[in-house]
Design a protein around this nucleic acid. Structure first.
Lengths: 110, 110
DNA sequence: TTTGGTACTTTGCGATACAAGGTATTAGAA
DNA sequence: TTCTAATACCTTGTATCGCAAAGTACCAAA
């Protein structure tokens, strides 16, 4: 892999996508395409081939539920919502994320 | 993969190890075992099977140089130092890391 | 009825973190 | 001398993940 700035960022993003998805769904329900838009707006680029398997994994882990909803502009949408278990996991991820930041800060110090 | 706290942290660590190694070597030279100790002290658990290939990759990318040094307590140690290219990369990684934090913060906001 | 837009899904590949096992050097004990 | 323990470096095989690319399906408007 080349050392481009984008590749550096891509590598750092890895492992945070699960957290980002749960964070968004912790605020409001969403369907895949809208998740991609929201992630992109925040600077977290994700593509379909990454997101769909990820949502299926989280659903299979019991972190998410979903319901189908008709759209006026195309095929029906699969709206995902956070389950109770998903909320617990999100809380743990919030803590884990803070610890990671602390760890990096510790390493940067002196 | 189970949803244990440790697994959550492990996933988030992924992609940050390169950055952590360069950050440490940006402060002082080090050999593999000492890197593991310093990472562990900061809460960034890494094992040998991860670190050695990583150091070899970074060396092959021209980010690191190394020199052998005798030890009074065992076999010789391979001390790694940051190359000029490694320093440039570290600077880019510092920026990328800050952007990642900003992105997550943006997602968490309302 | 055909085209374009939206949305969901799958397949195959490359990269990486890790567990587990292996090699080599040194110092000190038996 | 030989064996053991500690230190240190390295490799192999596996699982997972992110992504590019291709595929399927629905709907509305031309």
């Amino acid at each position: 892999m080349e050392n481009t700035v984008e590749n550096i960022r891509a590598q750092m993003r890895k492992g945070l996508l699960d957290y980002c998805i749960l964070s968004i769904l912790g605020k409001h329900e969403a369907y895949a395409s809208s998740l991609i838009e929201e992630l992109k707006a925040a600077g977290m680029i994700v593509v379909e081939g990454t997101l769909y398997p990820l949502l299926i994994r989280q659903k299979n882990q019991g972190l998410l539920d979903y319901r189908w909803e008709e759209s006026t502009q195309g095929p029906p949408r699969k709206y995902y919502v956070l389950s109770d278990k998903g909320r617990e996991q999100l809380a743990q991820m919030d803590a884990a994320w803070q610890e990671i930041i602390d760890s990096v800060n510790t390493l940067k110090r002196v």
